Simulated scan of single mutants.
Amino acid sequence: MNSKVEWSVGAFILMGFACALVLAFSSTNSQDRIGGGGYLLTARFSNLGELKTRAPVKIAGVKVGEVAKVELDAQKFEAVVTLRMTERSGELPADSSAAIYTSGLLGERYIGITPGGELDVLGNGDEILFTQSAVVLEQLIGKYMFGNAEGDKEP
């Protein structure tokens, strides 16, 4: 009788782990990363401001990809960000721009892409040339606290 209770408790615990595993995989939105016909783009930024891998890439507020890799170009001292775009992004014009934004005042960072109007399109491995780095709140506060703002220049 005692071994039946132990087996049933063990089976119950294993079912709980299986349910937690299924929940973890279903909540990570893994269909964007597994399979599919996406492509890679790169963009260079002078300041990422806490942008991390797997951060969303959005066009008009709709997620169309994610940050695949962040590296430092040791020659130019710029951050090189590789973006994994999904098929939902469509063909982006070659003069599209990318900027790093913050969700809310202190939320997570994401990359927003503004499509251009050129007829040529970006292909796999191409680089987005027009970029805008992150606005770092601490640097802005420091400028105004210590009088380095443009309006504080003395004659």
Rank of each mutant, 00 (worst) to 15 (best):
residue 80 V to A: 04
residue 101 Y to R: 10
residue 72 L to T: 11
residue 87 E to V: 08
residue 102 T to M: 14
residue 103 S to W: 13
residue 97 S to L: 01
residue 107 G to C: 10
residue 77 F to V: 07
residue 110 Y to Q: 04
residue 97 S to T: 06
residue 95 D to R: 03
residue 75 Q to V: 09
residue 86 T to K: 04
residue 81 V to A: 12
residue 100 I to R: 04
residue 77 F to C: 02
residue 105 L to W: 08
residue 86 T to F: 07
residue 84 R to G: 06
residue 97 S to Q: 04
residue 106 L to F: 12
residue 109 R to S: 13
residue 101 Y to Q: 10
residue 96 S to G: 00
residue 96 S to D: 00
residue 71 E to S: 13
residue 102 T to L: 05
residue 105 L to A: 10
residue 77 F to W: 13
residue 88 R to G: 04
residue 98 A to N: 02
residue 81 V to N: 04
residue 86 T to S: 15
residue 106 L to C: 03
residue 92 L to V: 08
residue 104 G to T: 06
residue 98 A to S: 07
residue 79 A to K: 04
residue 86 T to Q: 14
residue 109 R to W: 09
residue 102 T to N: 06
residue 104 G to L: 07
residue 98 A to Q: 04
residue 75 Q to P: 00
residue 75 Q to M: 12
residue 91 E to Q: 09
residue 88 R to F: 14
residue 83 L to C: 13
residue 69 K to I: 14
residue 88 R to Y: 12
residue 106 L to K: 01
residue 95 D to H: 02
residue 70 V to G: 07
residue 94 A to M: 07
residue 100 I to V: 15
residue 87 E to T: 11
residue 96 S to Q: 04
residue 97 S to D: 00
residue 72 L to N: 11
residue 104 G to V: 06
residue 78 E to M: 15
residue 89 S to H: 04
residue 79 A to D: 08
residue 92 L to N: 02
residue 105 L to G: 01
residue 81 V to P: 07
residue 109 R to E: 09
residue 76 K to I: 06
residue 109 R to M: 14
residue 88 R to S: 15
residue 70 V to P: 12
residue 85 M to V: 08
residue 103 S to L: 13
residue 89 S to R: 02
residue 80 V to W: 01
residue 79 A to E: 04
residue 109 R to Y: 10
residue 104 G to I: 12
residue 94 A to W: 01
residue 73 D to F: 00
residue 78 E to A: 10
residue 98 A to P: 01
residue 89 S to T: 07
residue 96 S to E: 01
residue 81 V to K: 03
residue 82 T to Q: 14
residue 88 R to A: 15
residue 79 A to N: 08
residue 70 V to E: 12
residue 103 S to P: 00
residue 68 A to Y: 11
residue 98 A to F: 01
residue 94 A to N: 02
residue 103 S to E: 14
residue 104 G to Q: 07
residue 105 L to V: 10
residue 96 S to L: 06
residue 69 K to R: 12
residue 110 Y to P: 01
residue 78 E to H: 10
residue 90 G to I: 06
residue 108 E to A: 14
residue 82 T to Y: 09
residue 81 V to S: 07
residue 83 L to W: 08
residue 108 E to L: 15
residue 91 E to G: 10
residue 83 L to D: 10
residue 104 G to Y: 08
residue 72 L to D: 07
residue 75 Q to L: 12
residue 75 Q to F: 13
residue 93 P to S: 02
residue 103 S to K: 11
residue 101 Y to H: 11
residue 105 L to E: 13
residue 107 G to T: 06
residue 108 E to G: 13
residue 86 T to W: 10
residue 78 E to S: 14
